[in-house]
Design a protein around this nucleic acid. Structure first.
Lengths: 363, 363
DNA sequence: ATTGACTATGACACCGATGTCATGACATCC
DNA sequence: GGATGTCATGACATCGGTGTCATAGTCAAT
């Protein structure tokens, strides 16, 4: 690979002058400039990032750690929206700021994080983004003292800046949307109860019910998350059984994510229950591959991964520029509600029955 | 950030000795080694990749260009398996060889490729992987003369090494699997006819039919690919109409990908047709998020993206090491057939009817 | 004509590593 | 005991750029 010295020799000038042409940081006569440009083209010269960064002590690199890439194959044990969307949002912002994103992958193994950070340090990254696969507390202490960091989709208790989804607000808005259609008995098939998202969203669900004056019914909340294992479909059958066994037969069902909703579609139909005529189904994530393709298309709440990635990157860049103080609480990002065909108003007789609350046999 | 000089001063030795401790390339007394190690820890010293690479003229970097990251949000106009799985396969291999993968994203805009390659050149990448979002001819001439490259999921006509899926073989195997269940009238709802995959897979489909002595029936092949647009569901309705209108009512339906199969599930059921009792449904891709979650679970052919990425990375590394000549034809990677609940043997009366081939009204 | 301001350019040092070569202290061998 | 070899270490140059400073030339103002 040609160096600045080769270009200088070819153009008959000093390396420093070539540098000036490259960086436009000092006047160079048109004639010289042209000779240099010609020489650069002839030699296919591209300046060396390494040489520059060693001198300037700035790498222009931002490191990003994720499990997205490897996890993708394990189909994500949680199988919500892939973290990849977060990476995408971050990438766009980083690139616009003329820095380069160095993406590293844990391969699903947290114990590899120190190695990855070490590699980042060798490359003298200016900041680090750490992306979790779903909303959760950070499971480890990040090494790399002194390097600014922003957590995405996770948070810790030592004040590291963090960007997380507004799960409570999302489920609250989603529930309000369903209630405003006239539904009064709304079941909720959640993800694992230990998940941060489940706790927060349940809070939003209850808040919306309370505001509408509807009593919370414990029987209408069932967990059914067990990705990929053959037992999951059974879990969903069971949850649906419980929903429809009680007196307050639901006219709409929330699902912890769109994937769960996809399975629910199939099972409901197998049981002779039509979506949305007999029961409305609502997901979470707006995983468009699913939500737009399912028939009928799925009403769901956007999990704003792309926006979260963008916001995290932006926060990191501002920290690097010294423009901001680190935020003292996680930044919560809200998503849109996507109304699609799977949600319609409940049948009138259903409403009546709900009001009577008795004398109903299983469908 | 501490430098090797800081460490040397702290340990009371020369920088060169610190270098020797780092690289273990010359004997150092135990006492000195310990002093140096202590100093490195105390200062949190990490060697500078830039300084090393400038001296050694080796970057240890491999560049990868993809649209996966940004495309993901556009939900991939084709919406097959995300290229991301290719990246994952490549990442694993590259990392094992102790090199670092530099991932860049086109953001879906091909005209940005030259910029990305330029950035790669500044970083002095040793090789480049170019990943296409689906099997297709390469749409541009890659810049970066002299840098070894391997194409993944695409190919050109100037002999650049390439790794592609074995579409013909995949559909052939899938068709044989369906025929061996006893099906004799098998419809095929394809992706866009212009797509490489469609052409190749049709070839495999026809070959399997021919070998089984079944005449190819043009009415049983319909294209229905139009991702995300609201018109797609209508397209699928129409295709199904045509399948079921003719005399040779199919007992199994191939879909161009798993996403299409997902939509077909919903529409078939809406029409009162049960999967798999009335008709078997088969996808392509083994997009596990879909294939394992759908109810009933989907029979499909694996699109071996991860293996393709791995193979491409391995090929590139071998080229760099001078171990191999560039292959003179694209390397075709085969995937597994995944048999799941959506495929069962056809009803006996269906077989009989097929044999009679007449007097059948629409279902 | 002299001065000062400005333009265009080059010499040289330096960034943080490592390769080359030199050197001093011992150990080994005939 | 002197020649030779090995070990442990350091001085110095070098990689490919850029920052600092110096210098020569041009032009307008005094």
């Amino acid at each position: 690979m040609a160096t600045i010295y080769d270009v200088a020799r070819q153009a008959g000038v000093s390396p420093k002058t070539v540098s000036r042409v490259l960086n436009r940081d000092a006047p160079v006569s048109d004639k010289t400039k042209e000779a240099v440009t010609l020489a650069m083209d002839a030699l296919g010269y591209v300046p060396s990032h390494a040489a520059r960064s060693i001198k300037s002590n700035k790498s222009g690199l931002i490191g990003l750690i994720t499990g997205a890439i490897s996890n993708a194959d394990e189909a994500a044990n949680h199988a919500g929206l892939p973290e990849l969307f977060i990476v995408q949002g971050a990438q766009a912002v980083i690139e616009r700021s003329r820095k380069t994103l160095l993406i590293s992958d844990t391969g699903g193994r947290l114990d590899r994080v120190p190695d990855l950070v070490r590699t980042f340090q060798e490359h003298r990254v200016e900041g680090i983004l750490y992306v979790a696969d779903y909303h959760k507390p950070l499971e480890l202490t990040l090494p790399g003292r002194g390097i600014p960091k922003v957590l995405v989709n996770c948070f810790d208790d030592i004040g590291t800046p963090a960007v997380v989804p507004d799960d409570e607000g999302g489920q609250y808005a989603l529930t309000k949307a369903v209630l405003s259609e006239g539904h009064r008995s709304v079941a909720y098939m959640t993800l694992a109860p230990t998940q941060e998202a489940t706790k927060l969203r349940l809070r939003g669900y209850r808040r919306a019910l309370a505001e509408a004056g509807i009593a919370f019914n414990d029987d209408l909340v069932q967990a059914a998350d067990l990705f990929g294992s053959p037992g999951e479909h059974q879990l969903i059958w069971d949850a649906l059984d419980k929903f429809f066994a009680g007196n307050s037969r639901p006219t709409a069902i929330f699902c912890g994510n769109d994937r769960l909703a996809m399975a629910v579609y199939g099972i409901l139909r197998r049981r002779g229950i039509s979506v949305p005529e007999d029961v409305s189904v609502v997901g979470y994530d707006d995983h468009r591959l699913i939500s737009e393709t399912l028939y009928p298309a799925l009403t769901t709440a956007e999990l704003p991964y792309s926006a979260m990635g963008a916001r995290a990157a932006q926060t990191l860049l501002e920290l690097l520029a010294g423009q901001t103080e680190a935020p003292n609480a996680p930044i919560r990002i809200s998503g849109q509600i996507r109304l699609r065909a799977s949600l319609i108003a409940p049948r009138t007789q259903d409403r009546d029955n709900i009001i009577n609350l008795k004398g109903r046999s299983e469908i």
